[in-house]
Amino acid sequence: MNKAKYTQEVPEDRKEVLKIIQEAKKPLKIMILGGVDSGKTTLTVYLANELLSQGFRVAIVDSDIGQKGILPPAVISLGFPEGIFTSLEEIRPVKHYFVGTITPNQFFGEMVTGVGLLVNEAIKRKADVVIIDTTGLVHGSGVELKRMKIEITKPDLILALQRKNELEDILKPFESKTRVIRLEISENARLHTREERRDIRREKWKKYFENSKEYVLDLRKFYITGTLMFQGREIIEEEKSILENLFKWIVFYGRKIIDKYFVVKADIGAFPRSFDKNIMKAIDLENLSNLIVGFIDKNGFCLGLGILKLINFKELKAHVVTPLTEAELSNAVEIRFGRIRVREDGEELGLLNRDAL
């Protein structure tokens, strides 16, 4: 299930980096950068274990939302390994920040906010060394994402794993501000296909939700975020009838937010429909089924994930499957909507665009 396992058979430059970290002033923040399958998590596991064996208090911020080691996917997680460990999955998280999808595209705000908050939390909890594991998005918009992560966390050390020069656009602006060490990619690093990465996620989703229970939750008792679906005012019957007749829809629920409508609907008949997206947002009811949601506490951290099964819009009650207990759910003040649909068996059903909800 995990690509990265603890091994002491590493290139010599890793051992040199370890000496630098051991001798550096603490607390020390380290950000690891690299493309897909460059060995970032393997390096994280190696450094963390070696530092633990030297008596340092190590924190790991796992922000690789698509290939998470610390469960579950779709969140950024903070963990403090208590002893030697084989893979990140063994680490019990102390905090999560909800992103709600498996790709950082369209979610830069959540990625930067989550990493920043969790690094601060690690320092507050007296970590000697904070290791930040990142996603493999390092080209195009990924350059800007990494820039923002570096600016918000201000790492003392950046470890750059690159095959050629693919990280230079990220690194050059920061070489005068922080220490950058370029590392070779291990000959043991293996590229995984998209299907293999999806299979790995499937097993992780399945493991996270394996002991889940279904709850019926009164949405009026929570703040609802990550969606426009409950903003503004509820539409009246006359508006509902007009929309249904105009577009041949069944409208299950609708709101009007200033001068824009948001409706949950199902099509009657298969034919093209067009409307001005500046005044209308519509989502198919089926796209809400199996949608990942996050349960958020009063401090903005994610207590855990749930799978939305259905919403009774008349009573504003949601049926949600989650491994959280009733006691844990009692600490949630907010339900935040994600953008990936997943079944309890781990099968991913698809991603929604950021603006879909």
Rank of each mutant, 00 (worst) to 15 (best):
K3A: 11
A4T: 02
P11W: 07
R14Q: 14
E16A: 13
I21F: 04
K29N: 08
L33E: 10
G34M: 09
S53V: 04
R57Y: 08
R57F: 04
V61D: 02
Q67S: 01
G69Y: 05
L88S: 01
E90Y: 01
I91V: 15
R92V: 14
H96K: 07
G100E: 01
Q106G: 01
F108C: 04
V112Y: 05
V115Q: 02
E121W: 00
A122I: 03
K126A: 12
K126E: 14
K126V: 00
K126C: 07
A127Y: 03
V129Y: 02
V129W: 01
V129E: 00
V138G: 15
G140M: 02
R147V: 00
K149C: 09
D156A: 09
D169W: 06
E175D: 01
S176T: 14
S176R: 13
L183K: 11
I185F: 11
S186Q: 07
L191A: 13
L191Y: 14
R201Y: 10
R202Q: 15
E210A: 06
N211W: 10
S212E: 09
I224C: 09
G226R: 01
T227Y: 00
F230S: 04
E237F: 15
E238P: 03
S241Q: 13
L243C: 06
E244G: 00
V251N: 03
R255I: 11
G269D: 11
G269I: 12
F275N: 07
K277I: 12
I279N: 08
I279R: 13
M280C: 10
M280P: 05
A282C: 06
L285M: 08
L285E: 10
E286Q: 12
N287C: 00
G294M: 08
N299T: 05
L303C: 03
L305Q: 06
I311C: 04
F313C: 03
E315I: 05
V321P: 01
V321M: 08
L324R: 10
L329V: 09
S330Y: 12
V333N: 06
E334I: 02
V342H: 02
E344H: 05
A356P: 02
